[in-house]
Design a protein around this nucleic acid. Structure first.
Lengths: 236, 236
DNA sequence: TCAAAAGTGTTAACCATACACCCATGC
DNA sequence: GCATGGGTGTATGGTTAACACTTTTGA
């Protein structure tokens, strides 16, 4: 039994961050949404798959903690993360009262080598349609992270991170469809993203396979920065 | 100096909840959005105004902690609260590393007597346009709570809580305008809320003042439960 | 010449917005 | 009879959504 040198006047719940990091993999014609999981090397739930994450350190900002845990457990050195919510239901962690802050992100999976360390015995991408049983309430957290991502993607195309410098509209569409889990009308999709002005034609064509070559485009971050559209939904 | 009997192997940040509770007050023709603040009776920031809130207890769920703190410090026994976000920027609390989970809610201010207790020396409603200087980073938290509420109100009319059993459409509209901080077209407003089906005509008329009496309506929760509309905004 | 993906326009339905006049009442 | 707020309808412009055929290439 270790000494327990950190003492407080009142009991304190533990605070963790958990990261729901997605990528997209596979052939263009059949992209699959994948999520990064680790195999736990520590009790509880040792040997089970779980979201990467862990305890927030003293005076560590929440997003920093998420990035650190992600790097420590999976080797992924950076990602754009967004907070989903804080969850602290009693009983969700068998170690006691633990509140977790959930982050979600999207990353190009093939640009980084996975490297499990620390509390993780393994780290790999899982197809979201073929998930193993997850530790704690991580199945629930994952679900919420995914819904958050899909909502955000409907507001703005958050997915340029996943594409090479230049890309075709079909690639952008396939990516979007993989994340949303639904197919989109090609003509409508093209018209809309071109109106939006986030992208501009780039030099060259992508020629591959026995068919007409495709125009390459690049992302125009300046246009992306300012959202011109109002997110109106209901009455007013 | 008190003893500090709660000891852990690793340092733990404190976890608080803070509640941004709004109400609407004043004449129908000039409703004002107000927020509930307490005057702190404990250091740090003793004597300063702050959002009600406090430390989460062991094995206490986050929403339960928010309700408890609200009741303890202001005497308001219940409210519909929604989580806004968790904030844990180092340095935001002079007592050390404290992560707070912010909740926002709306309540009918005149239905409950305010009663400051515990860490609060006073509790009162402040007009959101005439706020005092706030403790900690509470000005920022309040701002985020308000934006969250306004976003939600544009999705669905969250404000039936604030109205009596039966109400007129003008009352509903005045309320909505007070929260959004903008005026709305009367005909469009009426058409939309009636299409939505959340309300139904009730028996009777409201007759007051030298003008035509107004039809009373009541809230229909069953219809309210299912949102029929898709919150589409961008391309897809 | 065939298969496979790229590329392109139009239409109809719906939704948001703007706007002006009569009605019922109390004083 | 007038001041006050209650109540109503329509026209316009923009957005969404559905839909099919031609083009270019490699094999």
């Amino acid at each position: 039994m270790k000494r327990k040198p950190y003492c407080y006047e009142w009991p304190r719940p533990g605070v963790t961050v958990d990261i729901v990091l997605f990528t997209v993999a596979g052939a263009l014609s059949d992209l699959r949404l994948q999520v990064l999981l680790i195999e736990r090397n520590e009790p509880p739930w040792r040997g089970q798959w779980a979201l990467p994450g862990g305890f927030v350190r003293e005076n560590e900002d929440l997003p920093a903690a998420a990035l650190r845990e992600l790097e420590e457990e999976t080797g992924i050195p950076e990602a754009l993360l967004e907070q989903v919510e804080a969850v602290g239901t009693p009983g969700r962690d068998t170690r006691g009262h633990v509140i977790t802050v959930v982050y979600v992100g999207l990353i190009a999976g093939d640009r980084h080598q996975l490297r499990a360390r620390g509390d993780a015995r393994a780290a790999r991408w899982f197809d979201v349609r073929e998930l193993p049983t997850l530790a704690f309430d991580h199945a629930e957290l994952l679900e919420r992270g995914l819904r958050h991502l899909q909502r955000r993607l409907r507001e703005e195309p958050v997915c340029f991170e996943l594409l090479p410098e230049t890309f075709t509209l079909s690639e952008l569409q396939a990516l979007t469809e993989a994340i949303l889990g639904q197919t989109l009308d090609r003509r409508n999709f093209r018209r809309k993203v071109q109106e939006q002005g986030f992208i501009a034609p780039a030099q060259g064509m992508r020629r591959q396979g026995g068919h007409r070559p495709a125009q390459l485009y690049r992302f125009v971050p300046e246009q992306f920065a300012r959202h011109p559209r109002r997110p109106r939904t209901m009455p007013f």
